[in-house]
């Protein structure tokens, strides 16, 4: 039966009143690890360049070039640290919310009734730190899938169970 009740916009559950929960601080270690690999790759390339590239311009300004690369890495690192604090999530009775990003902040919500399946994945590092990543898939475009990194393992399991139960109920 279809009931067409009037909607009072003011009384709707509000996004702004939700307490979003930060992800585990442990996960920052994984972020650092991944970043370090990329930084060392870049800096390594520049160092290797000193022995390979024969151009005068490159050789005379070498200190400046390597300085700029290191500075870029440092800025990137600071931004990553600040952005890390923005990674937050919340599970409501009817939907899952995930928010991230410092320069471009986004809040994504997936209604539980639209979830197709849930995947829990753990990299080697995450296993050492007792963390897990939850991937929530919808039928939508690939962009509409939700990925929550760095959840404490125990919590990830609980969320997974809770959502799975809800999804199965709906079917």
């Amino acid at each position: 039966m279809f009931i067409n009740q009037q909607v009072e916009i003011e009384t709707l559950p509000k996004l702004s009143t939700i307490d979003l929960k930060p992800i585990s601080g442990q996960y920052f270690k994984i972020v650092i690890f991944n970043k370090l690999i990329i930084y060392s790759l870049f800096i390594g390339l520049v160092i290797a360049g000193k022995f390979i590239v024969q151009k005068d311009f490159f050789q005379t300004n070498y200190t400046i070039i390597i300085g700029v690369v290191i500075l870029c890495c440092l800025i990137n690192f600071v931004l990553a640290r600040l952005a890390f604090k923005k990674r937050k999530y919340a599970i409501r009775n009817k939907d899952v919310i995930y928010s991230k990003g410092l320069i471009v902040n986004s809040i994504t919500t997936v209604p539980i009734s639209r979830i197709q399946h849930i995947e829990e994945s753990r990299s080697w590092l995450a296993r050492q730190l007792h963390l897990a990543t939850l991937k929530i898939f919808t039928a939508g475009e690939s962009g509409s899938d939700l990925k929550i990194d760095g959840l404490p393992l125990e919590e990830a399991r609980q969320i997974n169970d809770f959502l799975s139960n809800k999804v199965n109920e709906n079917n």
């Binding site: 902040n105 986004s106 809040i107 994504t108 919500t109 209604p111 639209r114 919808t138």
Partner: peptide
């Protein structure tokens, strides 16, 4: 038929 909604805001928009 909506599958997900995302609110996006960059620093300038903020």
């Amino acid at each position: 038929k909506i599958q997900s909604i995302e609110l996006k805001q960059n620093l300038f928009q903020k």
